[in-house]
Amino acid sequence: MKNYRLKPPQIIISAFLILLIGLSYILHMDLVVLMNESMVKLVMNGVLVLSLIPMLNVGAGMNFGLPVGIIGGLVGMCLAVNFRMTGFYGFFMAILFTLMICTLLGWIYGLILNRVKGREEIAGIFIGFSFIPLMNYFWTLAPFQNREMLYPIGGQGLRPKISLENYFNHILDNYGLISIGNIEIPVGLIVIFAIICLFLYLYFRTKIGRATIAVGENEAFAKLSGINISQTRLIAIIISTIIAGFGICIYAQSYGFIQLYDEPLSMAFPAVSAILIGGSTGKKTFIFEAILGTYLLQSMYLLSVPIANEILVPELTEILRTFITYGIILYALLVRERRGIYS
């Protein structure tokens, strides 16, 4: 990390963030409350961002197919809710179901991506888009029983927004919450986040993890050294998918609802934006970069809402949010390192 250099997206976002903090100060907003919330937002979105790392490091690019893992997580949670599993037990079971479903989905997803080597990103986008309508059928037709999940009228098909109020709403947010004056530290949430970071850190230090990085950096080298390229890629893609599944579970317990149908689609781009802001170049990415990017992006979202309301242009938030999310991705595509000295 000693040669870490700030990149333009980070500078822009940081400058913007400072501007927002200045504004909120002038507008007499409660910065401490915002600080507390930013911590929650970091973990809520951060796991989804972390999930991109294994695929980036194996050389499969940005996982625009993030909806695949998210859907796995949604199914996992729906199962837990369906069986009326509540509290910690409920959350734990949701995670367990997610693990199983995402392993399967990730495996299939990986097999597909292995066949479109070099074009994973674009393939991921289309896999995401085509998986959604398929799942829409599933959500309406699957034989879930719990009435709290189904449409109130008719009793057929899942609601677009399933409340977790009676299940595992805020289960991690509230666990081990320490308050010092106004400052609240959600210890449970942070511990979970740290565990996932640690898992990733250790993964890249195992033998298979080192092979993963080698494949991402120089596939021909890895091949000559006897590494099984397809298998290494497959494992990385499965791990990415599983973490994405966990990510949506953690997101949902903070948010309080399971959001189905088209919702997973809207989650890939902010995650990609965040990791780009953190400094990823679409190749080897550090955990630190994912955390930094998420924090910057989410804090900016967070601050922009009350400020936009205060200065009476509430639409501004949404415009800004979309503009920044997509703008950063576009920027990254534009400057992405090209090879050859003449370019």
């Binding site: 080192r210 990085i213 080698a214 950096e217 120089n218 021909a220 080298f221 000559l224 050294s225 006897g226 080897k284």
Partner: peptide, 17 residues
Amino acid sequence: GLGILADQSLESNIIFT
């Protein structure tokens, strides 16, 4: 093209295979 992992340390390169 085939001989080194340019972004990694001497150490990682030497022990890799």
